[in-house]
Nucleic acid binder design. Structure first.
Length: 279
DNA sequence: CCGACGTCCTGCTAGC
DNA sequence: TGCTAGCAGGACGTCG
């Protein structure tokens, strides 16, 4: 669910609210998460202060003073919010980190696709996430990226969803970026020109920057770390706009299934390249 | 090796 | 109006 802009918003929201705070308690619900929270982790983090919080791809890393870190992924419906301990806990709240000072950090996840785990200072966190992730969108080097894309016979849509190709892009921003780049989602990587690759890279960065400025997209569950909704969904040009007129040309936006996901595009603005221009 | 597809889970809603 | 099949923003394992 939450893609890069949503995760970035959560991290920015949480930063001033949890950095420097000491964790005084941990409460985990009995309901089994996909990756169960181990009680042994409680003693490791109680008494520790939050040193920093950062994002890599769609992962959230909370650095503790001890050198241990909490590693979280929000999956499809995960939420990390700071609340007053008095405030009623919503259903599906699986983990609560108390700060003993009138606030607590809550992890809530209806579908339980997300996870929170402790990565001890003795363990290499890069081995856990870096190996699964390509560059941050702002760090993509066009030439290298183009080389990687050309090696793939998959669709551009599938390529953008592959976290090893580029970190942080999910279904919404893949569709929006391909529209801005004026590239058809079903175009094969191997058919992509250097000029198209560069257009795509620029489109992704532009879309993500705008989405972050709008605090991400709230379609259903997503809220930021302060509980606020995103508003980038107001600016979506294709996502969830099937049957509606394209904002550029007026043609009707199409929706089909591609790479296992609903995929939205404008048949006129994102035409299949002719055989001649494909070469 | 690569790419397509099923699966984990709950809740909402489109369509009958 | 009421019910239910299908779908939902992700990641990973398995299969061909």
């Amino acid at each position: 669910m939450p893609e890069l802009p949503e995760v970035e918003t959560v991290v920015r929201d949480l930063r001033p609210m949890i950095c420097g705070r000491r964790i005084t308690s941990v409460t985990s619900s009995r309901k089994r998460l996909r990756l169960p929270w181990r009680d042994a982790w409680n003693e490791a983090i109680i008494g520790q202060r939050v040193k920093a919080i950062r994002r890599r791809g769609k992962w959230i890393i909370v650095d503790l003073n001890s050198g241990d870190r909490l590693l979280a992924h929000l999956g499809m419906t995960g939420q990390l919010i700071v609340a007053a301990p008095m405030a009623p806990r919503q259903a599906h709240t699986h983990l609560v980190f108390g700060f003993g000072s009138g606030s607590e950090l809550r992890f809530r996840d209806v579908r339980r696709f997300g996870s929170v785990r402790l990565v001890p200072r003795t363990q290499d966190i890069d081995a856990l996430i870096e190996e699964k992730l390509g560059p941050e969108p702002w760090d993509v080097a066009t030439e290298q990226w183009h080389h990687d894309i050309r090696r793939s016979r998959r669709s551009l849509k599938a390529i953008l969803l592959d976290q090893r190709m580029i970190a942080g892009v999910g279904n919404i921003y893949a569709d929006e970026s391909l529209f801005v780049a004026q590239l058809p989602p079903n175009q094969r990587g191997e058919k992509t020109t250097l000029e198209q690759t560069e257009r795509l890279r620029i489109a992704i960065v532009r879309v993500l920057d705008q989405a972050i400025a709008a605090r991400g997209s709230t379609i259903r569950d997503y809220i930021g770390g302060s509980g606020l909704r995103g508003r980038f969904q107001m600016q979506h040009q294709v996502y969830r706009r099937a049957g509606k007129p394209c904002v550029v040309c007026g043609a009707l936006i199409q929706c089909t299934r591609m790479a296992g996901r609903s995929t939205h595009w404008c048949p006129n603005c994102q035409p299949i390249a002719s055989r001649r221009t494909n070469k």
